[in-house]
Computed example of a mutant assay.
Amino acid sequence: MKYNPLVSVIMPVYNYGHLIKESIDSVLAQTLPDFELIVVNDGSTDNSREIAHSYLDKRIKIINFPENRGCYPAMNAGMRVAKGEYLCVVGSDDINLPKRLEKQYLFLEENKELGMIGSAFQMLNDPLPYYKETDYETIKVLFLRNCYSSHATCMVRTALVQKYDLYYNESYTYSSDYDWQVRALSLFPASNINEIFYQIRMHEQQITKRKGKEQFFFMVQIRMKQLSFFRIKPTESEKALHNSFINGMADCHFDEKLINQWIDKLLEANRVTRYYSQQKLQNFLQAHCNQYIFQMKQT
């Protein structure tokens, strides 16, 4: 009889040989021992492959790509072979604190209505915690602006990933985790635990640093895609207005009157679709309106 672990941890890696050992060790040090760690070596040309293969722990499975395919294809490959009841995707340059898997697993076991749980986090060498909203309806609204929750802090039910074919859209080359979470939130409730379970390492090799402009391009596309939740097909002018407004960056082409008309259109559309909490959406849009008007007065 085959035995499946409680949690599958997927770790894509590309040329992080100088960092991956610390990240793997942080998974092996978890207080919940019943997991599998799937390391997906994305065609590394450094010693990442050798380091991954140096571990004798039977919980570690390794997938080797012969060439570099990209982070999201690597994540998809790991998710498709995952055997755990729950799964999470972690960075090969980041640190999982010892109780991360145990506490998130227990939380999902105790809250069956939730499909996914994230957590607070901090940057390595920075004690400042990044706490996150716990209310599902508020989280959905906050994703209208950007990828609000850190994807690497999330644990999701594997059955839901399989049921909804919830894998990464690889066409969003540098922002697919944003799209993935938006889709997840449209399918099932999620929350965050405001304890720090994860530490993010900032360095020059990160996608955010190396491909910031490209990442922003895809982020804007995902923002526009969310207008489908209102059943709105925006004109090119409305797309530009919405992006400027959500960014809080004043544009001389869009004055306060146009912004308020756009807000009214979004609120009226949501009264029909009821996708977002009307009050939480209104609060969110009003806050952005205030920020936009403030920016206009500064220019």
Score class of each variant (00 low, 15 high):
S176I: 03
A190R: 09
C147A: 12
S191T: 07
F143W: 09
Q282F: 06
S237T: 11
R183Q: 08
D165S: 14
M249P: 13
D255S: 08
K233D: 06
T153D: 01
E195M: 13
N194D: 01
S150C: 12
M224C: 07
I207E: 12
K163S: 07
I246V: 02
H242Y: 04
R271Y: 06
Q162H: 12
V156Y: 04
K225R: 08
P234Y: 08
L185M: 04
T173R: 15
K233G: 03
N283C: 12
Q181M: 10
D165L: 10
I259R: 04
T208S: 15
I232E: 05
I200Y: 00
Q181Y: 03
E204P: 07
N247D: 06
F245Y: 11
I232M: 08
T273I: 12
N270Q: 02
R157F: 00
N243A: 03
N283Y: 09
N192F: 05
D255R: 12
E268H: 07
L241W: 05
E238D: 09
V182H: 11
L281K: 04
V161N: 04
F229Y: 14
D264M: 15
T173I: 08
Q181R: 06
G248I: 05
A152G: 04
R271N: 09
L187E: 04
Q199F: 12
Y164V: 13
L227Y: 00
L241S: 10
L281I: 02
W262C: 02
Y148N: 00
A250W: 00
M224K: 10
K211F: 13
R145F: 06
Y178A: 14
K163Y: 05
K257V: 15
Q278V: 03
C252V: 15
M219Y: 10
R157V: 00
S150G: 12
I246L: 10
G248D: 09
H203T: 04
S149I: 15
Y275E: 09
E195D: 13
T235C: 08
Q181P: 03
R271T: 07
I232H: 03
Y168G: 10
I193A: 06
P189N: 09
Q206H: 15
Y178E: 13
F217Y: 11
F188M: 11
A240R: 02
K163V: 10
L227V: 02
N283D: 11
T153M: 01
M202T: 12
L267S: 12
R183H: 06
S176R: 11
C154R: 00
T235Q: 07
Q215I: 12
Y164E: 13
A190N: 14
L144D: 00
Y275P: 04
H242S: 01
V220S: 05
L142D: 05
Q261E: 15
K209A: 15
Q205Y: 14
Y174I: 07
A152V: 02
M202P: 12
C154G: 01
L241E: 09
Q226V: 06
V220F: 01
S176E: 10
C252A: 15
